[in-house]
Design a protein around this nucleic acid. Structure first.
Length: 212
DNA sequence: TGCCAGGCCCTCTTTAGGGCCTT
């Protein structure tokens, strides 16, 4: 069965959570996502989620999301169902995608939801393309590339939007540097998976030889 | 009892260890 995945649109997602591990009981408390079509941000999705318990002072301070805000937030069933519709069958991008994938898989599994898109990671791609940045945190790499930042950090939609700007910047950068007409999602995905030693040859051979 | 993520990457590696990145 062929997947009906758009080659030109991706969804960039970001979760704010109660901690680092769904296996240790951590939960998503905010979902943010944007759809990129033809390198332009089109639609946005944003919602808080009531996790059903009080979150720590650390997370309240880190995200600015408070227990008062979450008290009246919708439950995960409603939000994740809507989010599933927003994802459709698009491929998915996130900064340090393994983190967001872990939470998406955990939340969807509990609710019997699924997605068909594949993941790519802005952090791994940025490590390959910009090895001289002092680190590859989202904020740092945006500064390094002089990409305009949103006013907030550590809020889901703001972070998703900035990761989307980074994704678009990287695609345009590769297209420009390598005289490439249209970088596909899967080529960017491959870039995320190669190791440091292979990067030079990958960019030189694979990108340029696939330009038609 | 005490501790507790996990996937990826790099190198003083591969029979391992530690840093990065996400909340």
């Amino acid at each position: 069965m062929t997947k009906n995945i758009s080659a030109k649109s991706v969804v960039v997602i970001d979760f704010e959570t109660t901690g680092l591990s769904p296996k240790l009981g951590d939960r998503v408390i905010e979902v943010g996502a944007v759809i990129i079509e033809n390198n332009v941000i089109k639609n946005r999705f944003e919602s808080l989620i009531n996790p059903g318990f009080k979150i720590s002072q650390f997370i309240q301070g880190f995200t600015g999301i408070t227990n008062i805000m979450l008290k009246t937030a919708p439950n995960k069933e409603r939000v994740m169902k809507d989010f599933s519709k927003f994802l459709k069958n698009n491929n998915i991008v996130a900064h340090n995608a393994s983190f967001d994938k872990r939470f998406l898989d955990a939340e969807f599994k509990k609710l019997g939801l699924s997605y068909t898109g594949e993941f790519a990671c802005t952090m791994l791609a940025a490590r390959r393309l910009y090895p001289f940045s002092i680190n590859h945190k989202l904020e740092t790499i945006l500064d390094y590339l002089k990409i305009k930042k949103t006013k907030q950090f550590h809020r889901a939609l703001a972070d998703a939007e900035m990761a989307a700007r980074l994704w678009i910047h990287m695609i345009k950068d590769v297209e420009k540097k390598h005289n490439y007409r249209e970088i596909s999602f899967h080529l960017m995905q491959k870039l995320c998976k190669i190791n440091k030693r292979e990067t030079h040859n990958f960019l030189r051979k694979h990108f340029e030889c696939c330009n038609d």
